[in-house]
Design a protein around this nucleic acid. Sequence first.
DNA 1: ACAGTCTGTGTTATCGGTAACATGTTATCG
DNA 2: CGATAACATGTTACCGATAACACAGACTGT
Lengths: 335, 335
Amino acid sequence: MTARVTMRDVARALGVSPMTVSRALRADRTVSEETRARVRRKADELGYVYDTTAQAFRTQRSGFVAVTLPSINNANFAETFASLSRAMEGQGRQVLLGSTNYSAAREEDLVRQLLARNPEALVLTGGHHTAEARALLRGRGLPVVEMWTLPERPLGHAVGFSNAEAMGRVVRHVVQTGRRRLAYLGTSGDTDVRGAERKAGVLRAAAELDLPHVVQLDAGPAPVSMAQGDAAVAGLGRAVAQFDALLCVSDPVAFGALSACQRLGLSVPDDLAITGFGAFDVAAVSCPRLTTVTVHAHKIGQQVAEILHDILDGHGGHGLRQVDVGTALVVGETT
Amino acid sequence: MTARVTMRDVARALGVSPMTVSRALRADRTVSEETRARVRRKADELGYVYDTTAQAFRTQRSGFVAVTLPSINNANFAETFASLSRAMEGQGRQVLLGSTNYSAAREEDLVRQLLARNPEALVLTGGHHTAEARALLRGRGLPVVEMWTLPERPLGHAVGFSNAEAMGRVVRHVVQTGRRRLAYLGTSGDTDVRGAERKAGVLRAAAELDLPHVVQLDAGPAPVSMAQGDAAVAGLGRAVAQFDALLCVSDPVAFGALSACQRLGLSVPDDLAITGFGAFDVAAVSCPRLTTVTVHAHKIGQQVAEILHDILDGHGGHGLRQVDVGTALVVGETT
DNA sequence: ACAGTCTGTGTTATCGGTAACATGTTATCG
DNA sequence: CGATAACATGTTACCGATAACACAGACTGT
């Protein structure tokens, strides 16, 4: 184990002071271009690697932004994370990721862990937090951004869309195509905030259309997979055709339901319409293609990044921002 | 903004030395239980928050393990990451994630960035690295674990399986079911190491079975999506039925191909057998179910964690470990 | 009773950068 | 031409925790 190469070493090798090296390796204009080039070259030559830990310590700015996601095994969350991550990199920041498994208690633990790393901001996926977690955040005076929902009592900034409204659009669409016997296939428990909002949106929209009797089916606790959608419908058997539209909490569930219908010999959409949510890849490829809702996962990441940039790099940022990125209905072949 | 509360402040308030506070707040047994309790209480009272950054700096142990993945938007990589992440947490470490987008150049950048955070170990997803990146790692004397392949010239430890061998198993399976006109639908370019290994595995196994004429089809550069599998087959049209087995680089591609066949009115597996790779959710749910290969993504994460534990927490760990987690053929309804 | 050990605490120096200030050198201008 | 500004670099003192060592007092065993 050779000793670490530090700025001092680079400085000594060049006969300059460590300060000059420090300046040369950052975007500090007060160093001559020539010196900067020499420092860069020598640093590479010696295999010098900048020590962000030391910098973070000295400047009291960690360069971290902490992010919690319910699950990274979800194409949409993954996309948001990727776009946020890339944007942060452009700002010279790094993202610290934690996954809550759709549990508020787990989120609290995670927040504690992440806070010990001195992040400059915290990005949480949507709405439901323990009282303890809320207190922790308030106490810190740390910038907070919630994403993927637009909470009624936001902790800070928010970038998201209305899950309920999007589901309302889906309901109106299937009703327009003549369906009236609706069922909603969703997640159980109240841990999945977005799932709960979607369910509420379905019920509200249905009530507005004089369809108070939406049957609620349960695919299990979040995260719900294709297999669970499949199992839920297979469990019902051909009795599922008592409905003429099955609205699902997400595309994976919808696809599972679709496959189960195909195995039952039911025709989609003739015997039963099916809708998903999230515009996952599978929606555009399955046969028939799923009717779904596009959420702008990528844009959510970008918007969050923009807010963070404004707050952290000082360009304005007074007042809390609430950004609605909207959604769009994608009519496929299952309705 | 009040000044930060430090150990000094807590110490002063109690009339002890900062060292005693430091010891009390860690699991150091050399403080009396009584003192520890007093320190804890006072720390809470003053709103003291432990500064991990300072600790990381002083001890030169960051508590970070850096991980690179080609893409997090991939259920299998996500699963490995999740299991690794959870295990690391149990060891009091945190995972720093970076995504390479299947590019060695990008990986090099990323490694540089991650190294700047002083990780205690680096976990790379398989095989192909730039010379520069290799040099960086060697220079550091940092423990390195490669996963998802078993490279011929490993950089350090490795946890993976043979992509080629697994594909050989697939080839033998489809040939056993009577197919002889094989095509391989894979990724283009050599950036996708695992894809390249799979292709090589197909060609080798086919040659061994006296089937030298495997047609190579191209779904585009990694990451390949369902849509690309769909498009590749749709592009061929019914001519795809000149083959009697289409071996795909991954399940998403295979599922895309399957859907395209269904749209073309081809029967799978009667007109054409299709196989995937990776045992993604879709494989077990699609109708018909895909024949695929299970990779033990979860186990890979666990094994990596175990190795890291052994190395970093000192319990042995001399000599480089190469762990083969194996694969298993899953015969579905598409062959 | 006295050396030896064990306990609990304090002292000192330091990890690798960088803010703030100081200094020397070269352009610029009335 | 002297004064002042602009530029390039050096000096000093930290950021907050802790490893290593020092040390006083209590306990042990023979």
